[in-house]
Amino acid sequence: RQDLNFGQVVADILCEFLEVAIHLILYVREVYPSGIFQKRKKYNVPVQMSCHPELNQYIQDTLHCMKPLIEKNDAEKVVVVIMDKEHRPVERFVFEISQPTLLSIRCVHVDVCFCFCCCSSDSLLSHVEQLLRAFILKISVCDAVLNNNPPGCSFSVLVHTREAATRSMEKVQVIKDFPWIVADEQEVHMKEPRLIPLKTMTSDIVKVRKLLAAER
């Protein structure tokens, strides 16, 4: 248990959460036909997840490449962008991610070990599960506060990272044959977006600071 790598644990939890969140956003915002989604249970709530192999593989590859950045605390934001037929962003779901500082990582690491060794790991995991569930529930109902998107939309996942971290992304490219490029300005910025704060969450081991939806 002392060998437990805190960064990896956080990255695992966040990537699993982002996977569920991306599937749910694509379902709720009707980017794909509802027929490819199946009801599953995650974080003890029903969610809709795609059962289309090609789409699932794409989402998995995206998260696989992102994981090393999250592990090293190099991913500042993960943004799910919904684009219209002309590839202009019409909606963005912004996940601002921050991990505790190195010092607090160490402290929390001890806490985690303490929880695992002396208490029940169930209480810690159930706390994180509760927080992530709240995010998922917010996404499930976000269409109530968002306008309908035009037909024929697509999506993209953007990662805001520090310049120096781009090298590790290049490393992953070689392994996964899933190259990443710098996003075009027009894919990133929206003119006068309407910002809708959906949820903020903090816990000792995972921090997803803010979930924002922005629409044109």
């Binding site: 980017v31 794909y32 036909p33 027929g35 490819i36 289309h52 090609e54 789409l55 794409y58 989402i59 590859d61 995206t62 490449c65 500042e76 024929g152 939309c153 697509s154 999506f155 993209s156 996942v157 953007l158 990662v159 805001h160 990272t161 520090r162 310049e163 120096a164 971290a165 781009t166 992304m169 899933f178 190259p179 990443w180 490029i181 710098v182 996003a183 894919e187 990133v188």
Partner: peptide, 27 residues
Amino acid sequence: TGSATHILKPLMSPPTRDEILCTLLDL
């Protein structure tokens, strides 16, 4: 300095709605 923010995205695009509809029809 290495501190500037880069915004990265996968080079490949996800399958489009139409592509997915076609595969559903094939099935």
